[in-house]
Design a protein around this nucleic acid. Structure first.
Lengths: 211, 211, 211, 211
DNA sequence: CATGAATGAGAGTTCATTCAT
DNA sequence: GATGAATGAACTCTCATTCAT
């Protein structure tokens, strides 16, 4: 991503793509504005024409990654398939997202702590920064929505007697952990591709609660 | 210079414990030597009497956490129980370790990328720092051992016809992801305790591959 | 952040000049980046926009000083004068350089050990830093050239029977010692000016080997 | 120097010898108390039982080096030889001192600037430290005496018509520069030994002013 | 839009020095 | 005497951010 040979002016999305890559490789603290700028042939100063500050850029990446997956998950959760089939597809969708899209990986795997720990949305004057706070809240809302989708489908499965009456909340945490973790160990040139891993894991994960 | 009559002198282990806490809360980059020092009522400079540098302290934490769990896992893996029972205990042991011991959480969840990315073990003279390199290698060896123990027990289960012939490597990644992830969302004052989460998850995870 | 409307932006050469002064007064270790920055009305952090690090700035000063003298010495050594006249001019040129140009003094007198001892050219990642290593090698090459010029002219004098057949290498070390040392004790407001000292010393030094 | 296998308690002179070595190798700023302590199998803290502080230790080294040479120079200057012979011996004595005795090298070559620049004798409270100031003044007095001895003998030579009526002060600066500089480039395993260099240089230096 | 220059804040690290043991 | 532990001060260097051009 962010191939952009140069010259042409750079747009928001290219920066987000580049930032996602840097972010997943280095993490929030180690990823510098200069790193990200270099990835799109800009100087760090120029990034501030596109994003208010590092937090804003950071949140834009997470939002992009989460939206990317969510946009695929929503229709699946809403469709007419059986809950176990829906869940299978959702799991695969998530895992493939993590392996194939840097922004998804960044949004899912690494930066949760940073988001919760960092004094994001508090500017240097100590005042709360409305825009950024709003973006952060929107991100958290999306995350909740994300998790809720899984819980909902699992709930449907339990209700329809397809799944055992397990603790859906815990099960979803388990799911997400296993799926997000793929972003930690997945190597593009490894033995298995993202879709194979997804299929394999979906099987094990769903068998675990199927009747 | 040299104030501090010192109510009670601080030792290595106390520092490691404090560092584990800070590390799990903030991550490697965001956790400063000052943070850690403050947690044991010292100045940052004083930490350098006990640890060569941040990397060394960091590795000591990870080593402590990993050893803590490994010391419990080894006997389980080696005992005479049925593979599924062994696996159940090992999963529980890991999860409870993550929820109850900050060093375990730090060792498991967060610092994988840092460990692999950071120029650990290269000192200021540009020479490889034997001590630290050795510690890092030891840590990686322990991690391999850790994962291998799970693979071994899963393999036994497959051999004995207790588990389906799944891809043990992928399954163990799934296990570890789900288990490590607990460190991300677990709250000591939450609805469920670590042991309850452990029991619940162990059930779902083992059912997933049981015949 | 980013105060300073800046009356007049500072350039590399001004920094080098200021650094030369601080360097000759305090020496490598005692001269801090803050000292140098203050001398050009900057903060220490700003220096890093112009020089990669202290070593790079340090080497730039030495290079400037050495080049300054060498550029004057080369034509003299190459001209058609008698060897003793050439040597006289070269000695004077060196001494006046030392007394009138801080960078020359710094390059000549103080920093030899530092240059040879310090882990210059090894960056924080432990990799050899090509740029800085090249600068250091260039400096040493220039120093060799510098000394070789004197040896050459002395050799010519011996060949032409103007000088006694002394050990030219030792004699040149003696020359350089006497000349460099002027940088240690010379005071701009002393009894004699740089040119007077130069004339006086050139006389004594050349008489010492003249037939 | 400072061979001391260990065990036995260490005395002032051994510390001074070790410090001289470290000092000449690293210079004042780079030589740490720990370095020096390690050379005599002590900890840095222990050095403070023997010397008030780094400055005091440092001055003791310089004093030792200077005294060592001065004790040899005084009798020569005072004896009945011809001025040119006395000067020859004094030059040789100085050069051999520099090449064979680390404390002499330290006292002569490197640390003059440090002595003049550093806020020696000013303790952290900003108060002048009498003891150290006295030591520093004594050192400077010795240095003056040192230089005066050379000037005196040169003066005798001029008076007796053996030397040209040159500017004795400048000539002595030249002498000292050439001689001290030997400490910069001398290598124990080089082509010439200290005594050979001394003989060669003495010849050139004295010829330079002989009638 | 883009950027070079500048900077405050802060991080890791070192070091001389002190003090209780 | 010797030392382990502790610390204030200082240093090099990095980084997010600003602003004039």
């Amino acid at each position: 991503m962010a191939r952009k040979p140069a010259d042409q002016s750079v747009n928001r999305d290219e920066i987000i793509a580049a930032a996602a890559d840097v972010l997943q490789r280095k993490g929030y603290d180690a990823a510098t504005m200069k790193d990200i700028a270099a990835a799109v042939n800009l100087t760090a100063a120029s990034l501030y024409h596109h994003f208010k500050n590092k937090d804003a850029l950071f949140l834009a990446v997470l939002e992009a990654g989460l939206t990317f997956v969510l946009d695929q998950l929503e229709p699946i959760a809403a469709c007419d398939l059986r809950p176990d089939d829906k869940l299978r597809r959702m799991i695969a969708c998530h895992i493939v997202g993590v392996t194939n899209n840097r922004a998804v990986g960044a949004a899912m795997v690494f930066e949760i702590r940073a988001l919760m720990t960092l004094p994001i949305g508090i500017n240097e004057s100590g005042e709360l920064d409305g825009e950024i706070l709003a973006a952060r809240d929107a991100f958290f809302a999306q995350r909740d929505r994300f998790e809720a989708l899984f819980r909902q489908v699992v709930g449907e499965g339990i209700d329809q007697g397809l799944f055992r009456p397990i603790d859906a909340a815990i099960y979803v945490k388990l799911l997400l952990g296993a799926q997000n973790w793929v972003g930690v160990w997945f190597k593009p040139d490894g033995r298995l591709g993202g879709d194979e891993i997804a299929a394999s894991m979906a099987d094990m994960l769903i068998s675990g609660i199927s009747i």
